[in-house]
């Protein structure tokens, strides 16, 4: 299952070029963006660097990985703390059980693999040995969503947030860029309880501050607006930032809220924003069924049933392609967020 990794460097460079070309073509670079970037990196590298930092801060932090150390960027930790790192081989169910056992013995295990194998493949192990048993295990899931790219639908899990948020006790985090992923990784080491941390493979704009403080469960209002709220998570936060600038060119002032923590959901921030704007869009690299949008809809329907439009994958598997191509084909990019915002506005 891992034979295609890592992709040859020449391929990887080509993908970067495609992303940049797409941005130039859409004239996004000429937009008046509220957040910009000078560098791109994969969020998995943010995880890897945060994991190393967490390991330096706390000797109880240990690592496990099911034959994907390079892909998960766990190699630096393994090099610095070889006695605290456990290669488990291609055996994810055992890895989750081991992590639960280490946690009850007082360790803080970070168990890493691809998001598909970190959730669907081991759901019962996570349910019984981690969530129900309330074990301090950090499930670290890379290559989530469509932006995994060429490997195709077998690896592009789009159901993981739903599965994980349904589990009692589970905290679910989906940061948006390298810096936020690094900060989230450090933060979850300091938090006591099971956590699902989701990140990805593509090189992505770094548009949030370095050394930011990450507060689990606290939504981050990135851009103030009055007409519509865009609630975005993961890679789509960047698309939301771009969409905000596109909407502003048309005189529409969108509020952008970064929902890095899917569970517990910051319902207070959601309700406060929608009270002001009167309508909303959710944006996520995930199925509509069971995703962030569902959680927001639950919140709104109970307290303030305002119009909500979804940007996400509509009951479909993914396929091979570049990240940019896939986001476009499956309707997850800035243009689609703009369209959804207009639909929401029209329903006000």
């Amino acid at each position: 299952m891992t034979s295609n990794w890592p992709l040859p460097w020449n391929n990887w460079k080509k993908h970067l070029a495609i992303i940049d070309l797409s941005i130039a073509k859409d004239k996004k670079m000429s937009l008046d963006l509220k957040y910009t970037y000078t560098e791109k990196k994969d969020t998995r590298s943010g995880f890897g660097d945060g994991f190393l930092e967490a390991g330096r801060r706390n000797p109880n932090v240990v690592g496990l990985c099911a034959d994907l150390i390079g892909s998960l960027k766990m190699g630096d930790f393994q090099k610095e703390f070889p006695e605290r790192f456990f290669q488990t081989g291609i055996a994810e169910a055992n890895m989750i059980g081991l992590a639960a056992g280490m946690a009850l013995g007082g360790k803080i295990p970070f168990a890493g693999t691809f998001a598909n194998f970190a959730t669907g493949r081991v759901y019962d192990q996570i349910r019984q040995s981690v969530a129900y048993s309330d074990k301090n295990v950090k499930i670290c899931a890379s290559h989530a969503g469509l932006t995994l790219g060429e490997d195709g639908a077998t690896h592009q899990i789009l159901e993981d947030l739903g599965m994980m948020k349904m589990l009692p006790h589970m905290t679910v985090i989906n940061p948006c860029d390298y810096n936020q992923t690094k900060a989230a990784t450090i933060a979850i080491a300091e938090y006591e309880g099971p956590v699902y941390l989701r990140f990805g493979r593509p090189s992505w704009p770094i548009f949030t501050p370095t050394n930011q403080k990450f507060e689990i469960g606290k939504a981050w209002k990135m851009i103030d607006g009055k007409d519509v709220t865009i609630f975005a998570t993961g890679h789509l936060v960047w698309e939301a930032v771009v969409a905000e600038a596109m909407l502003r060119e048309e005189g529409i002032h969108a509020e952008v809220i970064n929902i890095h923590t899917i569970k517990p959901l910051d319902t207070e921030a959601i309700l406060e924003s929608v009270k002001k704007t009167g309508c909303a869009v959710s944006a996520e690299e995930h199925q509509l069924n069971g995703g962030l949008g569902d959680s927001i809809a639950q919140t709104l329907i109970r307290h303030n049933p305002a119009p909500l439009e979804y940007v996400g994958v509509n009951d479909s598997f993914g396929e091979s392609g570049t990240p940019t191509q896939l986001l476009e084909k499956y309707g997850l990019n800035a243009e689609n967020i703009v369209k959804a915002a207009k639909r929401a506005l029209a329903r006000k």
Binding site: R84, M95, L98, M102, G105, Q128, S129
Partner: peptide, 25 residues
């Protein structure tokens, strides 16, 4: 009781994980 069990096949992994923590300590 230190872990839930009932869904079979998981206890050996948990025991080994705890044994690994003991070795670290």
């Amino acid at each position: 009781i230190r872990i839930a069990s009932g869904s079979l096949g998981q206890g050996l992994s948990v025991a080994i994980g705890t044994a690994q923590a003991k070795k670290l300590d």
